[in-house]
Amino acid sequence: MTATGVGHIVDSIYNAGLDEKALSTLARRLAEYAGAQTATLSLHTCDIRAFLGLRDCLLAEAEIDYADQFLTQDVWRQAAKYMDSIGRTGPWARDGAAFKEVYQRLYLPLGDDSTFSLNALIATEHGVMSVATQRPTVNAPFSAADASKLQTLVPHLRRMQITRHRVQFLEAQASFARNALDCYAYPTLVILNDRHIVLANAAARAFLSRKESLFEQDGKLFAPQAGDARKLAAAVIKAQQGHEAGEARAAEIFRLGTGAPEDVRLIMSAMTGGKTILVILDDPAAPRISGTNLAELYGLTAAETALAEALLRGETIDTFADSRNVRMTTVRSQLSSVMRKTDTERQSQLVALLSRLPALTLREHSETKVFAAS
Results as ranks from 00 to 15, higher is better:
A233N: 09
R356Q: 11
A321W: 05
F254P: 09
A352S: 12
Y184I: 02
A286N: 15
L307P: 03
D182V: 11
Q134I: 09
E262N: 02
M160G: 04
R49H: 03
M328F: 02
F254L: 14
E20A: 11
A306R: 11
L150W: 02
F207G: 00
D84I: 09
R249Y: 03
T361A: 12
A60Q: 06
S333L: 08
C57N: 14
F176E: 10
G35C: 09
I191M: 08
N179T: 15
D263M: 05
C46A: 11
R340M: 02
L189W: 12
D322R: 11
V370P: 05
L58Y: 00
A373E: 15
T342C: 07
A3S: 06
A145K: 07
E20S: 10
H44Q: 05
Q151I: 03
L153S: 01
R158H: 07
K211T: 12
R346A: 14
R210N: 12
L353C: 04
N325Q: 14
L350D: 03
D74C: 06
D318Y: 08
R164P: 00
I86W: 02
V131L: 00
A359P: 00
T305S: 05
R158K: 08
A132N: 12
A251W: 14
C57M: 06
G17S: 07
H243V: 08
Q334I: 13
D322F: 06
N15E: 15
V6Q: 09
P261M: 13
I64S: 00
A145P: 05
A144V: 11
T329D: 15
K369R: 15
F371M: 12
L18C: 13
Q161G: 04
A98T: 09
N325T: 07
T272W: 06
A180C: 14
S366V: 14
